[in-house]
Design a protein around this nucleic acid. Structure first.
Length: 456
RNA sequence: GGUCACGUGGCGGAGUGGUGACGCAGCGGACUGCAAAUCCGUGUACCCCGGUUCAAUUCCGGGCGUGACCUCCA
């Protein structure tokens, strides 16, 4: 079965066919770099990284162009810079660096292109000029607005009718708008605000225009896949469609895919409650793969319950897989192809939970197998399948041993215990085991000697 | 008020018009000096009420609950 994706545009699962298999294009709305990213921000980066990997496997690494932008001009950035008393670039540089580090720590491949909004102001201005020429936008004293009623099909992505928008429009009286649903393409600069020169005076771009400009610049007028969080469906993605399609007269994106949110139980995650789960804080406590596993443990469109037990369980799940691989450490994996069942699961709208279940199936079979040839095949499928999902990326020994200097000390204790056991000094052997347990180390006695792993 | 999701066992989470995925936790057994790991076995789960059907957790209708969006929040 070829790759199928649930397309928000049609609300159905569709077979994916790129316009050009030698240049498959994908765009993800990236972060606004004004603060540390939280784990909710990581979900789209991770799930669409799996999609990126899957596309590369199908069409070849060189034939997939994946753009994930950095929004480095925005009202929130301006506020954050003012609060810190730092230049805007200091804030955006810092948090861009942190974002890249955080996502890399979660096993996310760098996108093909990572365009900066501030590097595409010229393209945005050109796009706005085209929209004005064609009668879809108008200049005002405070900038330039897109005139929503000028586009007959506005609302097709989110399923909203213009009348509903007008009726439900939140207060925010804006006399410069001809229609309450109109949105800003360009904002005139107020005193002390950063600005770029434009035909409409100094100002900065509106939120939506950057994605239209950058996607158009790097991926073409019609892109294959556009991804993002489902909160962006309206207004952001709806407005991207409006800007791009009215300017070019062509479809903007052929497949729209949106990820669901993380739930945090009763407590809502909010800065005021101080329970924001920041990626860089979680990474200090957990291996990146544990966080990645947790994010992939639910289907990307479904809500995912994020709680401490989820991380414990994710760690235990990875331990089980690493143990299975470790057991057959001497066996060279045969083949580099994931099992058909895993591919089938991922190609069925990125059914990562089913793919993870397949990894468990392979691990179980591997644990049971006593045939070296069979073990080699299973190990190859397990590593290849996990690799396609960005998992099992380290050596099992490294996974279980942790920091090397402390590991040497533990090795010594394990050796002492082995000696005690050889002498049938069970009291001493158990004492050492208790000590190791207290340090978060678990001992596993086997025919070939004792191995250990961290359980903390 | 409008639009859209979702509600599965102690937990996370698949899936299906009729044999209870998968993992964690629990229980019993094998193995072990004892354990751990591993293996084997083990669970009257599908929000409520109607309807369709020989049969519904799965389809339809209603209700309840949770969440997202309704101008800049993944």
């Amino acid at each position: 079965m070829p790759l199928h994706l649930t397309n928000t545009l049609t609300r159905t699962k569709e077979a994916f066919k790129p316009q050009d298999p030698t240049r498959v294009t994908m765009y993800l709305c990236g972060p606004t770099v004004y603060d540390y990213a939280h784990i909710g921000n990581a979900r789209p980066a991770v799930v669409f990284d799996v999609l990126f990997r899957l596309l590369r496997r199908t069409y070849g690494d060189a034939h997939v162009v994946y753009a994930r932008n950095i929004t480095d001009v925005d009202d929130k950035i301006i506020v954050a810079a003012a609060q810190r008393g730092e230049p805007i670039s200091a804030v955006t540089d810092k948090f861009t660096r942190i974002y890249r580090d955080d996502t890399a720590g979660l096993g996310v491949l760098p996108p093909t292109i990572e365009p900066l909004a501030t590097a595409h102001i010229g393209q945005m201005i050109a796009l706005i000029e085209r929209l004005i020429e064609k009668g879809y936008a108008y200049a005002t004293p405070t900038g330039v607005n897109f005139h929503v009623p000028a586009m007959a099909t506005y609302g097709k992505l989110s399923g909203r009718a213009l009348e509903d928008l007008e009726a439900g429009a939140r207060v925010e009286v804006d006399a410069t708008k001809r229609n309450p649903a109109d949105f800003a393409l360009w904002k005139a600069a107020k005193p002390d605000e950063p600005y770029w020169e434009s035909p409409w005076g100094p100002g900065r771009p509106g939120w939506h225009i950057e994605c239209s400009a950058m996607a158009g610049e790097h991926l073409g007028e019609t892109i294959d896949i556009h991804a993002g969080g489902h909160d962006l469906i309206f207004p952001h993605h709806e407005n991207e469609i409006a800007q791009s399609e009215c300017a070019t007269g062509k479809p903007f994106a052929r497949y729209w895919v949106h990820n669901g949110f993380l739930n945090f139980g009763d407590e809502k995650m909010s800065k005021s409650l101080g329970n924001v789960a920041l990626i860089h804080e979680l990474r200090a406590r957990w291996p990146g793969e544990v966080l990645r596993w947790a994010l992939l443990s639910a289907h990307y469109r479904a809500p995912l319950e994020w709680n401490p037990a989820l991380l414990e369980q994710s760690k235990a799940a990875l331990d089980r897989l690493y143990r299975a691989v470790q057991r057959v450490g001497a066996v060279a994996p045969a083949g580099r192809e994931p099992s058909p069942a895993l591919i089938e699961a991922l190609e069925d709208d990125l059914a990562t939970p089913r793919a993870l279940a397949e990894l468990f199936g392979l691990a179980s079979a591997l644990n049971k197998s006593e045939d070296a040839a069979e073990q080699a095949v299973l190990k190859g499928q397990l590593l290849a399948g996990a690799g396609l999902m960005g998992l099992l990326q380290v050596e099992p020994d490294a996974w279980f041993r942790g920091a090397e200097d402390e590991a040497a000390e533990i090795d010594a204790l394990v050796a002492a215990r082995t000696a005690a056991r050889a002498a049938k000094n069970w009291a001493e052997a158990d004492r050492i085991r208790t000590e190791l347990t207290a340090r978060g180390v678990e001992i596993m006695d086997g025919a070939g000697g004792s191995t250990w792993r961290r359980i903390g």
